[in-house]
Design a binder for these strands. Structure first.
Length: 426
RNA sequence: GGAGAGAUGGCUGAGUGGCCUAAAGCGAUCGCCUGCUAAGCGAUUGUACGCCUCAAAAGGUGUACCGGGGGUUCGAAUCCCCCUCUCUCCGCCA
């Protein structure tokens, strides 16, 4: 959420910035509710002050044996007025809170204005498209031909958008998770954490999935728990409602988790293969930083994700999301798009974002620069490093051979139990 | 799933309706003292929101906060109700 005082004092700037995102936000109602809240607050607090003083007087009189029935009668009506005001204050704050929680973040000044992904500027690219002396296949065909991906049985066991991995396919998925975690922990300075895969609604609200995007989530019936759509949620919430020491910043975490997405509204999109699943694996990097260093850390975060693709030898490009394509909570986002020859397309494989204080404010994650100084909100960042299922897709499609086998990239060989080429077994 | 005990400030822990502006201790910060260190002495000590002064930093002032929500009362950390979490024991279990 945005700083209410900042919105109050910079209403036109906020309006302009939000319009660039293409979001319609009722800022007039926000201003009115904010005004109303402060008016009520002033009145009710003055009454409380009176009541506190008079109650003290009643206590004093009682002790000295004096009568105080006149004061008690007077305070009776003051108390009922306080009760009424509290009621309307609560209503107003609920309205204001609801509005505040649905206003998206303001894009950073370096983010270009645009409508959708076609306007995202290219930041850099690495490697080149591999050439084939045969027609490269899509990963769903490669995977079924090698008997390592079983879409039909995944659908039988659960339903559409669930996949069974078998043999070297399952091994490849697991190898990638370990390869990514090891690189980020030993080379990039991240601390590995392993979190719950379900979180409560408070955590979902803190990172921005709730209240606006509930339809994208799986909820556990009869509880307040949701399946996580990304490890960003539990990992960012590790420090919810905490005041951190400046000396502990920045904090870098990396986590493997399964991710669960309802994919409401994506019917008919990417129905074949591993690209869009209800359940997928991801290694996620999360940072907590001081405000002045968060944009440097965003660059490092993106390069940490890119390093995985470089080591795997997969051609990719990095784009900067334009205002119209930016996620709800983000101020600036880089998407890494890996080349997928079987689909003749670049596909998103990582998304690295700086949320500035947007999540920290919702989550109450603060720090203190030195003893006695005021607390400030940290900046939070996160990025995939990487989406594992999509990395499997990239490896299968980029390393496929004419005979249908798939060569294992060198960087992954130490994790593959001696398998350096995936061939059909049985 | 059953039974019981708990939740108070950075930490430990007292507090069963008004002298709570939450005792005391520990820690931390600053100062004094002192060859050094330790000890000792003194002071300070949270968060949020509103209002005022203000360019800002900062200051002043008010309100709220003793796990969360409701209630009783002129007045609630304290009494009542509901919920959450933690711990112990029993049951079940990878």
């Amino acid at each position: 959420m945005l700083d209410i005082k900042f919105v109050r004092e910079n209403i036109d700037l906020v309006r302009t910035k939000l319009e660039e995102r293409g979001d319609a936000v009722d800022l007039d109602q926000f201003v009115a509710m904010d005004r109303r809240r402060r008016d009520i607050l002033q009145e009710v607090e003055a009454l409380r002050n009176e009541r506190n003083n008079v109650s003290k007087e009643i206590g004093a009189r009682k002790k000295s044996g004096q009568d105080s029935s006149d004061l008690i009668e007077k305070m009776g009506s003051v108390s009922s007025r306080i009760k009424d005001l509290d009621e309307s204050l609560k209503e107003t704050e609920a309205l204001l809170g609801g509005l505040t929680m649905t206003i998206p973040n303001i894009p950073h000044a370096s983010v270009v204005c645009g409508k959708g992904d076609e306007d995202n500027p290219l930041v850099r690219q690495w490697g080149g498209k591999p050439t084939f002396d045969f027609e490269p296949k899509a990963h769903w065909d490669i995977g079924e031909d090698l008997n390592i991906l079983d879409f039909a049985r995944g659908a039988k066991v659960t339903g559409a958008r669930f996949t069974l991995y078998r043999g070297a396919g399952a091994l490849l998925e697991r190898a990638l998770v370990n390869f990514m975690l090891d690189l980020h922990t030993t080379r990039h300075g991240y601390t590995e954490v392993f979190t719950p895969f379900m979180v409560n609604s408070e955590s979902m609200t803190a990172t921005g999935q709730l209240p606006k995007f509930e339809e994208d989530l799986f909820k556990i019936t009869g509880t307040d728990y949701y399946l996580i759509p990304t490890a960003e949620v539990p990992v960012t919430n590790i420090h919810r409602d905490e005041i951190l020491d400046e000396k502990d910043l920045p904090i870098f975490y990396v986590a493997y988790s399964a991710c669960f997405r309802a994919e409401a509204g994506s019917y008919g999109k990417d129905t074949r293969g591993l690209i869009r699943q209800h359940q997928f694996n991801k290694v996620e990097m999360v940072k907590f930083t001081r405000p002045e260093e968060s944009y440097d850390e965003l660059e490092k975060l993106a390069s940490n994700a890119e390093e995985i693709l470089k080591r795997l030898g997969i051609h990719f490009r990095t784009v900067s999301l334009c205002t119209g394509d930016l996620g709800f909570s983000s101020s600036k986002t880089y998407d890494l798009e890996a080349w997928m020859p079987g689909q003749n397309a670049y596909r998103e494989i990582s998304s690295c974002s700086n949320f500035e204080a947007f999540q920290a404010r919702r989550a109450g994650i603060r720090f203190r620069r030195r003893e006695g100084s005021k607390v400030e909100y940290v900046h939070t960042l996160n990025g995939s490093g990487l989406a594992v299922g999509r990395t499997v897709v990239a490896i299968l499609e980029n390393y496929q051979q004419k005979d249908g086998s798939v060569i294992v990239p060198d960087a992954l060989k130490p994790y593959m139990n001696g398998v350096d080429r995936i061939v059909r077994n049985k």
